[in-house]
Amino acid sequence: MRRLTLPLWLISGFLYAFMYAPIVVVIVFSFNSARHGGPWMGFTTEWYAKLLDSPDKITATNNTVILAVVSTIVSTVLGTMLGYGMSRYRFPGKRMFSWLMYIPVVIPDIVMAVAMLSFYALLRDWLGLFQLGMTTMIIAHITFQIPFVAIVVRSRMVGMDPAIEEAAHDLGASTWQTFWNVTFPLMIPGVLAGAMLAITLSLDDFVVSFFTTGPGATTLPILIYSSVKRGITPDINALSTLIVLASVAGVIGATLLQRPHRQAGGG
């Protein structure tokens, strides 16, 4: 179990190949010169060149980035405050709210998506606001991101040594000073981890965006979905390849970024 036996190598090798087969095939077929997919017809890079002058793909990329950045900023602020408050103070109904935070973790995203879609429709009938579009999609993303950020921040807070803050108070620091000079710097790795989770959740999300968006506010996953429904085209493979490369860069970047913090943050 602890040794690398031959069967373990074979099984793991097969599973890695299985996980990477779809990623590799998308990359390979993005260089396929066949116009409508199909078998391999020869090497070309024309699909990448075509991406640059297709305004719908550029708009979708912009929308995806705006959505991810705005929702991550808001949810990281609110989620960090929530996680901090939950780990430090008592208030009536706290147990119930701790359960509430697990809703986005344990509920299928389609349930969240249709719930928000109907709620927006109700609000629209009453208030005339919440027209489906970029704003509703951003609100929806913030909603499922907050609990994830709060859970991550809170779990990192639990491992913090109370003696450090006690010492700050004993030395005469005010609550505010203690928070900004002692507590918050210690929280930073947790906050960054929460923000990283939030931004990837947003970039990856298709279902919630698909249900809460409106005309004109297409994101990359929505664009890919609707194109694939009409039939896979090589330019979609090229677009997907770029997204895959961005994720690979993101994963490697995040791994490198976490390295110096390894000793500070446990788990």
């Binding site: 989620g79 408050g85 719930a115 913030i142």
Partner: peptide, 23 residues
Amino acid sequence: SALTSGPGIFWVVFFLLVPLVSI
């Protein structure tokens, strides 16, 4: 609690719990 957890709780209750109940 109200100053730290308050806004987050309010957001999640208003945009998630209420919609789930309305479903």
